[in-house]
Amino acid sequence: MTTPEKPIPTVTDENRPFWDGCAAGELRMQRCASCSHVRYPVQPLCPKCLDDSAEWTALSGRGEVFAKVIYQRAFNPAFAADVPYNLVLVQLDEGPRMYGNVVGPADDGIRVGAAVAVCFDEVAEGVSVPRFRLATD
């Protein structure tokens, strides 16, 4: 039996700039051209002011761990070899919150409130997934 493959991101016309940014080593999100609200995940209009126009802007990639869970069971068999693995919700400095994994330390070394910085993991040809490392500086 072959090992099932992990999911790769579904790229749409709407979210392509986000994934293109990851491939280029930048965390890019939509910033409202009218009120400057940074939104994530991709939305067709600003949920604050309803303006349709947005520009894709590079974020610092810095933030802190907002919450952390550790999977001790693989609900998708493709992750069986990774168990245990963590999932974190990261509060980014620019405002949005996003999911990711912290790479590097053992899972019990990741604390809620810990400072993190984005890094990128090429999972397929031309496809990079953003993850986080503990920020030491």
């Binding site: 995940p41 869970v69 069971r73 693995y85 999932l87 999972v123």
Partner: peptide, 22 residues
């Protein structure tokens, strides 16, 4: 967009409430 959380291994109905508990 929610389905894409699968790239980080966010599978299983316990995910969101585990975030809450954390």
């Amino acid at each position: 967009e929610t389905a894409n959380n699968g790239v980080w291994g966010a599978f299983g109905a316990a995910t969101w409430s585990a975030i809450t508990a954390s």
